[in-house]
C-alpha cells in the first residue's frame, strides 16, 4: 500500500510539469498580449497612446522575452516564493486576488461532490434493488432531467423562484451586510445559507450521473454468484446487499472523484457567473477575456492541480477499498 502511494505521488511530478506547460501555452495561444488588448481599449475610448510607455511596460513585464523565458520566470517565482505573477488588469499580485476565491471554489466543489454522493448512493442502491419499481422509474426520470438540464439554466430557474416566491435573491454567497465584513459566526451562518443553492445546482448533474452509474454497477453485482452464496449462508437481504455487492459497486463511485471533480469545477464557473458568486469562476472568465495572462494561467494551473490531486485521492481510496488493486 505504501509503495503504491509513493509510486502514485512520484507520477504526479511529471504530470504537474506537463500541466503547467500546457496551461502556459493555452494562455498564450490567442494572438497578442495584455498590452495589445489594453491599447485597443484605449483607442476605443479615444485616448492618446504613448507608444514609448507601452514598450516600457512590455519590457518591465518581460513580454518582449521569448515564451520559454517567460514560462521559466513564472514557474520559478511560484516554486521559490509562492509568487504567481502580477495581474495587469487589477494591478495586484495574483496571489492576493486568488486566495479567498480559490477557497470558496473548493468549498463549493467539495460540498457539491458530498451532496452528490449523499443523494446518489442511497438512491442508486434503491433503484437497483427495486429495479423497474415505480420509485425506480421516478428516480430514473428525474435523473435524466438532471443530466440533461444545463447548470446555468437551473441557476436561472432557482434565482427566479427565490426572488418570485421567497423574496430573496439567490445570487452571491453573502448577504450585503456581511459581504465586506470580517469572518464571524454570523457571517458563517449566512454563508452556509447561501451555499445551499449553489451546491444543489452544481451538484445536480453529478448526482444524476452517479445515480445511473451506481444503479448500473449494482445491477451487475447483484447477479453475481457471491450474492447467492451469501444468501445460502443465511444472511438477511439488507446485510448481504450492503456488505457485498454495494461494496464492490462502490469502486466506480470512488473513482468518480477523478472525473466528476473537474466536471463540477468547470460547471461551477458558469454557475458562479450566473449567480454572481465571488469564486474563481467569474474572475477566470474575465482574466481570459482580457488576456491577463498570469492571472488566467495561475487559475488554469490551480484548477488542474486540484483535479490531479482529486484523482490521486480517488486512486488511494480505491486501493484502500479494493485489495485487487492494492496487491497488484
Amino acid at each position: 500500500m505504501t509503495a503504491y502511494i509513493v509510486r502514485r505521488l512520484l507520477f504526479i511530478i511529471p504530470t504537474l510539469i506537463v500541466i503547467s506547460i500546457i496551461s502556459f501555452i493555452i494562455i498564450r495561444l490567442p494572438p497578442g498580449d495584455f498590452l495589445t488588448m489594453y491599447m485597443s481599449t484605449l483607442m476605443e475610448e479615444g485616448a492618446e497612446i504613448n507608444h514609448e510607455l507601452i514598450e516600457a511596460l512590455r519590457r518591465q513585464y518581460g513580454l518582449d522575452r521569448p515564451a520559454y523565458v517567460q514560462y521559466s520566470r513564472w514557474i520559478w517565482g511560484i516554486l521559490s516564493r509562492g509568487d504567481f505573477g502580477y495581474s495587469f488588469e487589477w494591478g495586484q499580485p495574483v496571489r492576493a486576488l486568488i486566495g479567498e476565491r480559490l477557497l470558496l471554489t473548493m468549498v463549493i466543489s467539495v460540498g457539491s461532490l458530498l451532496f452528490a454522493w449523499s443523494i446518489a448512493l442511497p438512491v442508486g442502491i434503491y433503484s437497483a434493488v427495486k429495479q423497474y419499481s415505480l420509485p425506480d422509474y421516478i428516480f430514473t426520470f428525474l435523473g435524466f432531467i438532471g443530466l440533461a438540464t444545463p447548470n446555468f439554466l437551473l441557476a436561472i430557474i432557482f434565482m427566479y423562484i427565490a426572488s418570485q416566491y421567497f423574496g430573496t435573491g439567490a445570487g452571491g454567497l453573502f448577504s450585503p451586510e456581511y459581504a465586506d465584513a470580517a469572518w464571524s459566526f454570523g457571517k458563517f451562518v449566512d454563508f452556509l445559507k447561501h451555499l445551499i443553492i449553489p451546491l444543489i445546482i452544481v451538484g445536480t448533474s453529478g448526482t444524476a450521473s452517479l445515480i445511473r452509474i451506481t444503479r448500473a454497477n449494482l445491477l451487475d453485482e447483484l447477479k453475481k454468484p457471491y450474492v447467492e452464496a451469501a444468501t445460502a449462508k443465511g444472511l438477511s437481504k439488507a446485510r448481504r446487499v450492503l456488505k457485498y455487492p454495494v461494496r464492490v459497486a462502490l469502486n466506480p463511485f470512488v473513482s468518480s472523484i477523478g472525473f466528476v471533480f473537474p466536471q463540477i469545477v468547470s460547471g461551477e464557473i458558469i454557475v458562479s457567473v450566473v449567480l454572481n458568486l465571488p469564486t474563481t469562476g467569474p474572475l477566470l472568465l474575465r482574466a481570459l477575456l482580457a488576456q491577463d495572462m498570469y492571472l488566467a494561467g495561475s487559475f488554469v494551473l490551480m484548477l488542474a492541480v486540484m483535479t490531479v490531486f482529486g484523482v490521486l485521492l480517488s486512486d488511494i481510496l480505491l486501493a484502500w477499498l479494493d485489495p485487487r488493486i492494492r496487491y497488484d
Binding site: K224, A232, K233, G234, L321
Partner: peptide, 22 residues
C-alpha cells in the same frame, strides 16, 4: 434464514465468483 448455512449449507460451481472479491 437460520436453516440456510446452519442445517443446510451449499457450495457452488465457481469458487472464484462465489467468494467476494473484496
Amino acid at each position: 434464514r437460520r436453516i440456510r448455512g446452519k442445517n443446510i449449507a451449499m457450495i457452488f460451481q465457481e469458487p472464484m465468483a462465489s467468494l467476494s472479491p473484496v
